[in-house]
């Protein structure tokens, strides 16, 4: 039995978890999510990219509690945030708890979401406020 990320090319299920972006070797642009096609800055094909690890840590740029959702998961209400990662890129993600505010420092952690047929635990990334 192992632990696997829901989106293995976006997330390494380590402790602490690592967010995976890309870096363009031609123009040094660092981006998230990692792109399979090409560089928005210089037009290089994705074959010119290297995988780029990003710490799942940053500060909240914007936050919203979602009251209505078109799917059963995540159950409402839940909180989403725009997070300026310490490594540069900006991500949007679910934040657990109700204490996130603009400017809060947050860190990523893994939550079990599901189990596959052979018992592997599928995990996904959440953020939480660090004091």
């Amino acid at each position: 039995m192992t632990t696997e990320a829901r989106h293995p090319h976006l997330l390494k299920p380590t402790n602490p978890p690592i967010i995976v972006g890309h870096r363009c070797i031609s123009c040094e642009q660092i981006a998230f999510p990692p792109d399979p096609y090409g560089c928005e800055k210089c037009g290089s094909p994705a074959s010119n990219f290297e995988s780029w690890d990003l710490e799942a840590r940053g500060s909240v740029r914007a936050v919203a509690m979602v009251y209505r959702h078109h799917r059963p998961t995540p159950p409402t209400p839940f909180t989403v945030a725009v997070i300026d990662l310490v490594g540069g890129p900006v991500v949007k993600a679910i934040v657990e708890g109700d204490d996130a505010a603009v400017g809060s420092s947050v860190e990523g952690f893994l939550v079990p979401e599901d189990q596959d047929d052979v018992g592997n635990v599928i995990v996904d990334l959440r953020f939480r406020v660090i004091q």
Partner: peptide, 15 residues
């Protein structure tokens, strides 16, 4: 487009 994201599905236009 085949470009997955972390928040897939949880952030719709109103959010």
């Amino acid at each position: 487009a085949g470009i997955a994201n972390l928040e897939a599905g949880s952030i719709v236009p109103f959010t």
